[in-house]
Structure formats: C-alpha cells, structure tokens
C-alpha cells in the first residue's frame, strides 16, 4: 500500500522531470529561432559583446588554466604504464595530443564553461527579469532580447573555442611535464611527435564543435534566465537548471557530432 503510493509519487516526479526537460528543449528551439531573427538586426552592440567576452575570459581563465594543465599531466601519467605494457610507450605524446585535441579539451572546457557561465547568465538575466529591469528596457523601446541575450550568446560562442585552444595547449604542456618527469624526454622530440601525429581532420572537428558548445552554454543560460518566474526562488532555479541542461546537451551533442565526423571523414 505504502509502497504503491511511493511508487506513484516517484513516477509522477519522473514524469514531471521528463515533461520539463522536453518543454525546455521545445522552448530552446523557439528561443534559438528568435536568436537567429535578432542576430542580424542592427544595432549590433559590438561594445556589449566585447564587454561580455572580457568578463567571460576573466571569470573562467583561472579554473580553465589549472584544469587544462592537469588533464594533460594526469592523462600522460595514467596512460604511461598501460602503454608501456603494450610496448607502445613511444606513442605516448601522440596519444596525449590526440585525446586532448579531439575529445578531452573541447568537452571538459565546455563543461567547466557551462558550470561557470550558464549559471551566471541564468542568474543575471533571471534577477533582471524579476526586478523588472527587462520590462524597463522593453518600455523604453529597447529590444531587451538583442541587448541582453544576443550579445551574451555571441560572446559565449566566440570565446569558448579560444579557451579550448588554450586548454589544449596547456594540456599538451602538462603531458610533457609528466613524461619528462618519468622518462626525461627532450622537449623538441615531444613537440615533434605531437605535431606529426595531429592532422587537420583531428583539429577542425575538435574545434568546430566548441562553437556549438559555446552557443549552447549561452542560449540555455539566457533562456532559463529570460523566462524566470517566481521571484528570487526562480532565479536560483534558473541558475542551477541551466547548468544541468547545458551540460546534458553538450554531452549528447558531443556523441552525435563525434559519430557525424567519423561518418564524414572516413
């Protein structure tokens, strides 16, 4: 009896979550169309976009730097004994480079970026919504969507690929440090095997998808914030749920895009 009602409750929560998720996806699609409609409309607000890019850079650079270096370091450290067991130690630099460029760099940077930035945008726009600042723009005949949403989403889309390149660079350095410490490998040798192992077809898809990830982070945070309801409680909810949703979409998109690039490139 009690078990039954418990089960019902669980199911209804699950139902609601699922409903919420799909209605968010539907809402995001409409929001994206709105974005496309507004992005080409003047005025372009370049100043605002630059301001947001600066802010995003400052906000994420420290954490992203540490992470980048450590990814490379740990990856090389952990893989070395395994590779040695198969007698493939010579391929260690290439392995580090390929994993970092194709997968780890883009995805981990995007996830960290989502955690830092999606929640920030959600909270910022959410509190502007509940304190009627967005309404105030609207009645002053200023398009708040353009001024607040488009500028932030563009800034995210532009800055994430840059951050990813930087993370990849640091990760490769971190990999070098690990190998150097255990094997004393020469830097030139390391960079040579890194450069030789990387092909155009590794770098382009790896970086290309980060534009999309950046867009996702921006648009999800903006969507959740822009339609915040229920006062300050809603602001908190917008902020956390945008991180969850952005991260989920990034992971799923990574899988789909990975499959797609394999299909296209081979």
């Amino acid at each position: 009896m009690a078990n039954n009602s418990q089960e019902k409750l669980t199911r209804s929560i699950a139902d609601r979550r699922l409903n919420e998720f799909f209605s968010t996806i539907a809402g995001l699609t409409i929001f994206s169309f709105e974005f496309l409609k507004n992005v080409f409309l003047p005025p372009y607000e370049f100043g605002e976009i630059r301001k947001h890019m600066d802010e995003l850079g400052v906000k994420t650079l420290p954490i992203v730097s540490v992470t980048g270096f450590i990814i490379g370091l740990v990856l090389a450290m952990q893989s070395q004994p395994v590779m040695a067991r198969f007698g493939a130690e010579a391929f260690l630099p290439s392995m580090v480079a390929l994993s970092v460029v194709r997968e780890l760099g883009p995805v981990i940077t995007a996830l960290i970026f989502a955690g830092r930035v999606s929640s920030g945008i959600g909270a910022e726009l959410g509190s502007m919504r509940v304190t009627e600042q967005i309404d105030a723009m609207e009645v002053s005949a200023i398009n708040p969507f353009k001024f607040l949403v488009v500028t932030r989403v563009l800034a995210c889309t532009i800055i994430l690929p840059v951050l990813t390149l930087y993370v990849i660079f640091l990760a490769i350095l971190g990999g070098y440090l690990a190998i150097f410490l255990s094997k004393g490998i020469n830097f030139e040798l390391y960079t040579n095997s890194v450069v030789n192992s990387l092909q155009f077809s590794d770098i382009v898809p790896g970086i290309a998808k980060t534009f999309f990830f950046g867009y996702i982070v921006g648009i999800v945070g903006a969507y959740k914030g822009y339609y915040t309801e229920n006062g300050t409680v809603g602001v908190g909810r917008a902020s956390t749920s945008s991180v969850v949703i952005a991260s989920l979409i990034i992971l799923v998109a990574d899988m789909v895009l990975g499959k797609l690039t394999v299909a296209l490139w081979s």
Binding site: S127, Q133, A136
Partner: peptide, 17 residues
Amino acid sequence: GIRKYIGFLFQSSALYD
C-alpha cells in the same frame, strides 16, 4: 514608435543594477 514617447516609472524603480 509609441513607447518612445511614453515614460513609465516602475513601482520597484527597476534601475539597471
């Protein structure tokens, strides 16, 4: 076009923080 010539004072002031 019409809103440009309307002023609206919000009960909550709604200043851009």
